[in-house]
Amino acid sequence: MANSMNITLKVWRQAGPDVKGGFETYQVPDANAHMSFLELLDVLNEQLIKEGNDPVEFDHDCREGICGSCGVVIDGVAHGPQKRTACCQLHMRHYRDGDTIVIEPWRAEGFPIIKDLVVDRSAFDRIIASGGYISANTGAAQDANSLPIAKADADLAMDYATCIGCGACVAACPNASASLFTAAKIAQLSLLPQGDPERKTRVKSMVDQMAEEGFGDCSNHAECEAVCPKGISISSISRMRREYVKAMTD
């Protein structure tokens, strides 16, 4: 079959959080150019189960690039070679028959490994819980059109709001910083009039929580933007910094 491929995979295996891990090499002789990358892992796992071995664990859910569950480092790049694409949306037509692919989990102090390629990203939830919201109890809202918002602001807020919380930004950052994730939410809410009343407390709490979770600081490498499956711009980080300075000095 014209589309069939023989792929070699070097996959990080680690039985648990406190166990030493290492690479294992596997052959997938019946890969196919139309498969998604995760379907390649499915085929590998079916093979492993049939041979009596444990399958490779990886997080995945929607497989449409929107839930943010999946995320592995592929040949050294978070989510792999295709720009603005989560690894569930990466397809094997970008590889050639005979290729070897190396797969690793996100590596960051803030994301402890659970098993194989699965990591614990609950730190992201705690960053949001520290202030990544607008306090508006159900039922208290006024009519939706009573608050006009310039289209340009609404569109830019939407650009930042598309973050899927996958953690690729952290995995790609030399400092394992969660700045892009944190800043995307701060930038979205600071662009909207609804977010104004809490803008100072929000930025302070979220930035502090990010540090507390063990994520590093941003030193402008911009690796995060390069791997972000939603193409979120690091201009969000400059917005976050401006907001932070304003909050500290006012």
Binding site: T138, D155, Q194, G195
Partner: peptide
């Protein structure tokens, strides 16, 4: 109304 108040960028 509720979603706009929460900052949903429609």
């Amino acid at each position: 109304d509720q979603c706009v108040a929460q900052g949903v960028p429609f």
